[in-house]
Design a protein around this nucleic acid. Sequence first.
DNA 1: ACAAATACCTGTAAGC
DNA 2: TGCTTACAGGTATTTG
Length: 270
Amino acid sequence: MPELPEVETVRRDLAGALGGARVSDVVVSGKRSIRRQHPDVFAAALAGARLESFARWGKYLLLGLDSGQVLVAHLRMSGQLLLALRRDAVMRHTHVRVMFSDGRELRFVDPRTFGELFVTSPDLPELAGLGTDALALDLGAFRALVGARRARVKPLLLDQRAVAGIGNIYSDEILWSARLRWYRRADQLRPIEVRRLHEAIGEVLTAAIAARGSSLGDGQYVDLAGLPGTYQERHMVYGRAGAPCPRCGRPIERTVVAQRSHFWCRACQR
DNA sequence: ACAAATACCTGTAAGC
DNA sequence: TGCTTACAGGTATTTG
């Protein structure tokens, strides 16, 4: 579910709420969420540590600890990080509770259990191969990347080894903004089209962050306080099959690309 | 060397 | 009112 804008929203919330907080205890009730290491190893690495920094790389959250290690979180499709008080009722699908010495706690809730948390060293060996963050790519680097890839643009935007952070919602919004069809080959885009695509990535992701991300009808993405974002109100194509294109009025189409829904406008995407 | 299919899960909505 | 099916923001692995 969450893509770069949603993860960035949670990152900012965490930085505002938990800077300097000290972990007193960790409870792992769903060990599938801690599958890269033994839950006891995970808990021991966190116990007594203080949260010092809050970074993001693509869709990964990187919480730096005063021990020098890093708590890594990926929400995948249905994961949520929620700030609670220890006395608050624990909702269904809560798999990990990171308790702080001041009575607050960070809860990892994840119905589909695809998400995960782990503690690792600051060189992040598990993230080797992850591409440059989508908001850190300047035009020159983006040109070099795109020019070297034969892939179609939509699969390329979704490939986290190429560019990190873009998922199914934002790839469609970006392609609509750049007026490009999904199947255009990256290395065959004209220079002006590469420029439009790069600009669209920055504009769409930045606007979505300002709106605190997209929350769809099922309420799966919420911020640290459990509140939804509002960027779904500004989706131009995603989830709007049959509705008029905001640019030209022709109906938005839905087609299946690489087993995922793809929303686009036949008239103004070329 | 690729792309496509599959697997991992639960919840919800739509169709019958 | 059920019951069945399709689909969902992601990604690692297997298959072709």
